[in-house]
Structure formats: C-alpha cells, structure tokens
Amino acid sequence: NMTTNERRVIVPADPTLWTQEHVRQWLEWAIKEYSLMEIDTSFFQNMDGKELCKMNKEDFLRATTLYNTEVLLSHLSYLRES
C-alpha cells in the first residue's frame, strides 16, 4: 500500500514549465487520485505544459467527459494560482 508521498508526482510547481513527461505524470496521477475514467490520454501525448495551460473547456471535452474536464481544469487552475 503506497503512502501519499510515494504517489505524489514531482513536477515543477508552475504547470507552464512542464515538459511532455510532466504532463503525462500529472495526468496519470489525476486519473488515479480522482478515479477518472474515459480519458483519451493519447490526446495529451505530445503536449507540454504551455500547450496544456492554453487548453480551454472545449479542448478538454474532445479528450474526455464533462466531469473529468471540470476536475482536471480546476486542479490545473489551483496549481497555477499556488
């Protein structure tokens, strides 16, 4: 059983600085953390943090459901504000 610390993704605090690998790690973490289903992860495959942060609700909806979109966008905006 993993502790919270072991599951925590170590990525730069500012999502606009993320590499493609960071985006992948964040997505994998969010899927596990929030038990998200039905995400087309290939949609995010060649995307870095700058591109991710430019995405709006409609962009996310092409890859996943409305619920997942709201979870991911709210977590992303939380990270950008902190």
Rank of each mutant, 00 (worst) to 15 (best):
L27Y: 01
F60P: 00
E58L: 08
K54E: 14
I31G: 04
R7E: 11
L76H: 01
M37T: 14
P15D: 03
Q45M: 13
V9S: 15
Y34A: 05
N68W: 00
V71T: 08
F44M: 04
V11Y: 13
A63Q: 11
K50C: 05
Y67W: 07
V71P: 04
A30P: 00
D40P: 07
W29Y: 10
T64V: 02
R62C: 06
K50G: 10
L61V: 08
D48P: 05
D59Y: 11
S74Q: 03
R24S: 14
K50N: 14
L72K: 00
W18M: 02
L66E: 13
T16C: 04
D40N: 15
L61W: 11
F60K: 01
N46Q: 10
A63R: 11
A30T: 10
F60T: 00
E6T: 12
L36S: 02
G49M: 00
W26A: 00
C53M: 08
D40A: 03
C53A: 06
F44A: 09
Q20E: 06
V9I: 08
K32P: 04
R62M: 13
K32I: 07
E33Q: 10
E38F: 04
L52F: 10
M55Q: 07
E33A: 07
E70M: 05
I31E: 11
T16Q: 05
L36V: 06
T3D: 03
Q45E: 13
K54V: 08
K54L: 12
M47T: 04
F43L: 14
E51I: 05
L61K: 04
K54N: 13
A63E: 06
R62Y: 03
S74M: 11
I39S: 01
K32G: 06
A63W: 12
M55A: 08
T3P: 05
L66M: 12
E70I: 02
Q20W: 08
K32V: 07
I10G: 15
A13R: 13
A30I: 10
R62E: 12
S42D: 14
E38K: 09
V71R: 13
T3V: 06
H22K: 06
N5I: 01
D14M: 03
R7V: 10
R7Y: 08
P15E: 01
K57L: 06
R24F: 11
E70H: 12
F44V: 06
R7L: 15
N46T: 14
N1V: 07
E33D: 08
V11N: 14
E58C: 09
S42M: 09
N56F: 03
T65G: 10
L61M: 08
R8W: 03
L36A: 01
L73P: 01
N1I: 15
M2D: 02
R24L: 12
Q20S: 13
N46C: 07
K54P: 02
F44T: 03
K57V: 12
A13H: 07
S42Q: 13
N46F: 13
Q45S: 12
V9D: 10
T4G: 10
S74C: 09
D59E: 07
K32E: 12
N56P: 07
E21M: 11
W29Q: 14
A63F: 08
L72I: 14
D14E: 14
L72Q: 00
W29F: 04
E28P: 01
V23R: 02
T16L: 09
V23W: 01
L61H: 04
K50V: 07
E6L: 12
E33L: 00
W29S: 15
R7K: 05
A63Y: 14
A30V: 09
L72T: 01
K32Q: 10
H22I: 06
P12L: 04
E28M: 07
N56H: 15
C53V: 12
T19P: 00
S35V: 03
F44C: 08
T19W: 01
A13I: 13
T3H: 04
D48G: 08
T16G: 08
L17F: 08
P12E: 15
Y34P: 00
L66K: 11
K57T: 09
F60Y: 15
R7A: 05
T19V: 04
L61E: 07
L52A: 02
F43M: 12
W18L: 01
T65I: 00
Q25R: 12
L73Q: 14
T65D: 07
T3N: 10
P15H: 01
T65N: 11
V11M: 15
M55K: 13
I39M: 13
F43Q: 12
N56K: 15
V11L: 15
K57E: 08
D48E: 06
L76P: 02
F60Q: 00
M47A: 07
N5A: 12
L17A: 13
S35N: 13
Y67P: 12
Y34G: 06
Y34M: 07
E38Y: 08
D59W: 09
E38S: 10
T4W: 11
N5L: 14
D40E: 11
Y67R: 14
E21Y: 14
T41I: 02
S42F: 06
K57R: 10
E51N: 08
L73I: 06
T64E: 01
L52E: 00
S42A: 11
Q25K: 13
T65Q: 06
E58N: 14
F43S: 11
N5E: 11
R8C: 05
A30E: 10
Q45H: 10
R24V: 14
L52C: 02
T4F: 11
K54D: 14
R24Y: 05
L76V: 03
N56I: 05
D48I: 04
L17S: 12
T65M: 03
G49R: 01
T41L: 14
T3C: 13
E51W: 03
L36Y: 01
D48L: 04
D48A: 08
E58T: 10
T16A: 14
N56G: 14
E51D: 04
D14T: 04
F43D: 07
S35Q: 09
L36M: 10
S35P: 06
R62P: 06
V23D: 01
E58I: 04
E38V: 06
K57D: 05
M37N: 03
L17T: 12
N56C: 07
R62N: 11
K32R: 10
I39L: 12
I10M: 12
T3F: 15
L27S: 03
Q25A: 10
Q20D: 10
A13Y: 10
Q20L: 05
R7I: 05
L73E: 04
A63I: 05
T69H: 01
P15G: 00
E21W: 05
L36F: 06
P12G: 11
T65W: 00
D40Q: 05
I31H: 11
E70W: 00
E70F: 03
T65Y: 00
G49C: 01
R8D: 13
D59C: 11
T65C: 11
D59G: 10
F43Y: 12
T3W: 11
G49K: 00
I31A: 11
W18N: 01
L61Y: 01
I39H: 02
R62F: 04
N46I: 04
T65K: 03
R24N: 09
S35G: 14
N5M: 08
W18Q: 01
Q25G: 11
N1A: 10
E58Q: 14
L61I: 05
R8G: 03
T3G: 09
C53K: 02
Y78F: 08
P12I: 06
D48V: 13
K32T: 12
Y67E: 15
A63H: 07
H22M: 13
K50W: 06
N46R: 14
R7H: 05
D14F: 03
S42K: 06
K57S: 05
S77F: 08
N56S: 11
R62T: 08
N1L: 08
D14P: 03
Q45P: 04
R24I: 07
T4M: 10
E21V: 09
T41C: 13
W29P: 00
Y34C: 04
V71A: 12
G49V: 01
Q20C: 07
T19G: 06
T64S: 02
Q20F: 02
